[in-house]
């Protein structure tokens, strides 16, 4: 597996010289493999949003190096614009950034900025809209008349149209109803499986992380405190609770049963897995 992005000793300090400096990131070392689905979790203010902005060059690390595809993005001759094309960033409530008269034009904004030929721009934006499941009849309407969930998906398409290799999303499901959440998560899973896009998902929902992520990165006070497969990470229930996070409800049930002497493996983190393991345990005499 190739490494798409690597962070070496990255630190970030806010407001240097203003008198109230704040260290948002402390000595972060990370490797992100191409094709991974990463869940990035942390309490509000843990530095995860700052980290996201470092990845596509919107913010510049105070110290440390970041490599994309093996090249240092802080090299003098590094093309930042190409980095922003390759690393897509979807902010919280991305629908608040829609501005064009039609859905199609809005999605075309990104590829047009990349200076692509018109045909390519149209093709990319059409494909992006298909990927997020926006039907043809909505392409020519104003984005402002769409429903909340549709707006959100159009906004995500606006980033996808740049055809990023790595997509970072800051709570893309916030405020959506359960089905809307699932739709977004399935879009992300498809992007990873079919388009081979590496995904970094910032989310507060441990249940979703358990279900979709290959690897979890836990941040607290600007540092990476835990990192690994969800099955491994969610064993640390107490540690996670201490930093304002939790574990999926399924994991909680398993942990409780284990405490009462039940012999069920730790590794169940989704409802289905837990049910299966509990079933086996119940059948054992």
């Amino acid at each position: 597996m190739s490494i798409i992005m690597q962070l070496e000793n990255v630190s970030y300090i806010y407001g240097i010289g203003s008198g109230h400096e704040k260290q948002a990131l402390k000595n972060i070392n990370l490797k992100i493999n191409a094709g991974e689905f990463i869940g990035l979790v942390g309490h509000t203010g843990s530095g995860k949003s700052t980290l996201a902005q470092l990845l596509n060059g919107l913010e510049h690390a105070t110290t440390g190096e970041i490599y994309y595809d093996g090249r240092n993005i802080y090299d003098k001759d590094y093309d930042m614009k190409s980095l922003r094309g390759n690393v897509g960033l979807v902010f919280q409530y991305p629908e608040h950034q829609l501005f064009e008269a039609t859905v199609e034009e809005d999605v075309q904004f990104g590829p047009r900025n990349l200076g692509l030929p018109l045909l390519e721009v149209e093709l990319r934006s059409y494909n992006a809209l298909k990927m997020v499941g926006i039907s043809d009849d909505l392409i020519d309407v104003s984005p402002f008349v769409l429903s909340g969930g549709q707006k959100r998906r159009v906004a995500i398409a606006g980033v996808l149209a740049m055809q990023p290799k790595l997509l970072v999303l800051d709570e893309p499901m916030a405020g959506l109803d359960p089905t809307g959440r699932e739709e977004i998560l399935n879009i992300l899973r498809n992007l990873r499986d079919k388009q081979k896009i590496t995904i970094i998902l910032i989310s507060h929902s441990m249940e979703d992380i358990a279900e979709y992520a290959d690897r979890v990165i836990v941040m607290n006070k600007g540092e990476v405190v835990l990192e690994g497969e969800p099955k491994k990470i969610f064993q640390f229930e107490e540690e996670l609770e201490k930093i304002g996070l939790g574990v999926p409800q399924s994991t909680k049930v398993i942990h409780r049963l284990r405490k009462m002497g039940a012999d069920i493996p730790y590794s169940c983190i989704t409802a289905e897995e837990s049910a299966g393991a509990i079933y086996k345990w119940l059948q054992r005499v």
Binding site: Q53, N56, L58, K81, R84, G85, G88, L89, F91, P94, H96, Q97, F109, G110, N113, L114, G158, V159, M162
Partner: peptide
């Protein structure tokens, strides 16, 4: 600031 960053992320100049 946030909107500016979001549009920068979409390649705005």
């Amino acid at each position: 600031d946030k909107i500016m960053k979001a549009q920068l992320a979409r390649g705005a100049d």
